[in-house]
Design a protein around this nucleic acid. Structure first.
Lengths: 254, 254
DNA sequence: CGCAAAATTGAAGATTATCAACATCGGTGG
DNA sequence: CCACCGATGTTGATAATCTTCAATTTTGCG
């Protein structure tokens, strides 16, 4: 029961803070639980030393040992087709659960890779099951968290079915903004943790198309792009574009 | 606790058959449970009178009362954008769980519509939670079933990111075949329960593109199309196309 | 400061959406 | 039993969008 790690005495920022004092509490597994129950949850959660960009949480085919919740930073989950090409299945921001892909048969069908320096909570799955059986609130909250993950999957699909590249990009930014807002970050000035290639891959587009889309949205006055920092200028217009309410996105005359 | 309905004495085919004798047992919530536990599960499951094509299981915004498992037939889940257009989120074949979209906040964000005459099992969600807390096996199996649903979502995404229409179609048929096989149906001669429009919507394509894709795949000797009956002739070739291993799907010279 | 990776921009070619006409299927009623 | 009708599905032509290949610029970091 290796609950405590060498990490305990390091006192790095964000480490060994209890769930009770975690700002992500409401979004995470800890949501809506009594202080007593939180202690029990705390006991099984391992808080890992921050991972560097590119570090892997788990690999495809590996058994489901733990589920993870990002605490700070960002993670992408990817699969690899027969031809070996990477496909990004999801981006995971703070408070979002990672590892559900192994729920079906106990083996991961994704690989999880840190996009930036990332610290996260690790929850041994077997122990989670045990504790959840004892604490009714945790059981319920686990379902809610799973539901949120399913909801993000659905959002991703709703992006991918769009035929217009700019609509996908607008939806992507719009959704990201909402997620940032939910974790108390600035929903207008977005600091993107992922590259254009990763965005393109996630959106099912060529990277050049994404690049062009960004400049196009900027030219139309919807966003302001400075590398990986994107500012949402005309949130309403962006939302209209995102929801396909712009009939003819014509070029300016001339 | 309205467990029994007027339906009890009807003895329609597929009605009031216990989980223990259900052919879908292994895929469904009943998988891997003892005979005793199955009885307990049986007690909370309502088996509904078959629904006609077009009937709705639940609507968007409605509270999560029950989850459903298709027993026979097929169901689609759809959302409606701001502009009112329908978007198909998933197709649900026998043994597949429906209703997880409401797990996050207790309200459905999809609508579920029967594609053909469909009979299914209804499981009141509150009671499921109670029983699951008592039966450790059910808890575990519930996770597995949720995991399978998440896996299908991932498959759907992997279809949608494909840029080539024929690849999407090939992947769609390939995946459908696998699901048919899992429930003991012929994985080669597929009887599609959904229209071309629905397929196009699900694949993020125009319906004409789907129609052309079908005939193209037929011309290439991969499938044989007779309306909604599609026979997979060259399964290997179809898989190769599905996985993007065909470099240049050129037209025949001339 | 310089280099490699990341991002932008340009031009050409290919694929798909769209509009439109036509064929086919299934069910209903004569 | 056949004919009709609407719904469903197929096919054709055109225009628009996206991908691809290529060159260039910018960024980030040692």
């Amino acid at each position: 029961m290796a609950v405590m790690e060498a990490v305990t005495h390091l006192d790095l920022p964000g480490l060994r803070r209890s769930c009770a004092r975690c700002s992500l509490q409401q979004l995470c597994l800890a949501g809506g639980m009594s202080h007593e129950d939180l202690d029990q949850l705390d006991d099984i959660i391992r808080q890992r030393r921050p991972l560097g960009a590119g570090a892997r949480l788990f690999r495809m085919g590996q058994g489901l040992d733990s589920v993870f919740v990002t605490r700070d930073g960002a993670v992408k989950t990817v699969t690899f087709g027969e031809n070996g090409d990477e496909q990004i299945i999801g981006f995971h921001l703070p408070g979002e659960l990672i590892g559900l892909d192994a729920l079906a048969d106990g083996k991961h069908r994704c690989e999880a890779v840190a996009l930036t320096q990332t610290s996260l909570c690790e929850i041994p799955f077997a122990q989670l099951g045990e504790v959840a059986a004892q604490i009714p609130g945790l059981q319920q909250q686990l379902m809610r968290v799973i539901g949120m993950s399913v909801g993000r999957d659905q959002d991703h699909k709703e992006i991918l079915v769009r035929r217009q590249a700019n609509e996908r990009i607008a939806l992507f930014l719009h959704g990201l903004s909402a997620r940032y807002k939910a974790i108390g970050r600035d929903p207008v000035r977005l600091q993107l943790p992922m590259s254009r290639i990763d965005i393109a891959n996630y959106l099912g587009l060529a990277l050049e198309t994404v690049s062009r889309g960004f400049t196009r949205l900027q030219d139309d006055g919807l966003i302001e792009v400075r590398g990986r920092q994107v500012e949402l200028v005309d949130t309403l217009g962006l939302a209209r574009l995102a929801h396909g309410l712009v009939e003819a996105p014509k070029l300016r005359h001339g």
